[in-house]
Amino acid sequence: MNVFRLAGDISHLLAIIVLVIKIWKTRSCAGISGRSQILFALVYTTRYLDLFTNFISAYNSAMKIFFIVASYATIFLMYSKFRATYDHNHDTFRIEFLIVPVSGLALLVNHDFTPLEILWTFSIYLESVAILPQLFMVSKTGEAETITSHYLFALGSYRTLYLFNWIYRYYAEGFYDLIAIIAGLVQSVLYCDFFYLYITKVLKGKRLSLPA
């Protein structure tokens, strides 16, 4: 565990907590893509199946369980409790266009052709693009609530911090995982535009709105 990895995990944890609290406190999931949330639940479910096969640390297991539980809780809040506030007219990204190619790629490019390893690879690839329905929704409505921007910033920062963690681990431990690194790069690049808007607008106290 190095400082980049820890900062990345904290950022990831904060993102998820901010989203749940936002929905709970405002009694609304307006502006949040349920499709991205479904993809994230799929990501955590397929990646953390190793909870049953490998024990790494109490920290590792606790975080995994938290991510899985929080992702399903978010889906429950969006599709059941606060369903009336869900903005489905703007949440129209076709997730099969992500799931199908990602499944194919996971079958073709993986470390090991075993069920758990293929599911892990699938989750890494899927995570890299899972935010697209949310970014699509923001671009469609042309704006995002400030709290949603904070959520997106924390969520995007997490994988970018992991990139620094992987650079560190490569030099310190000789460890590298090309699948995670390339997917992490893709994931971080997808947020670049958003990061720019966040820094130039939200941090200066303005609402995040896109140029027409």
Partner: peptide, 10 residues
């Protein structure tokens, strides 16, 4: 690649 089966990151 060095890593297979055991993934110690989240």
């Amino acid at each position: 690649d060095t890593n297979s089966e055991i993934h110690d990151e989240l």
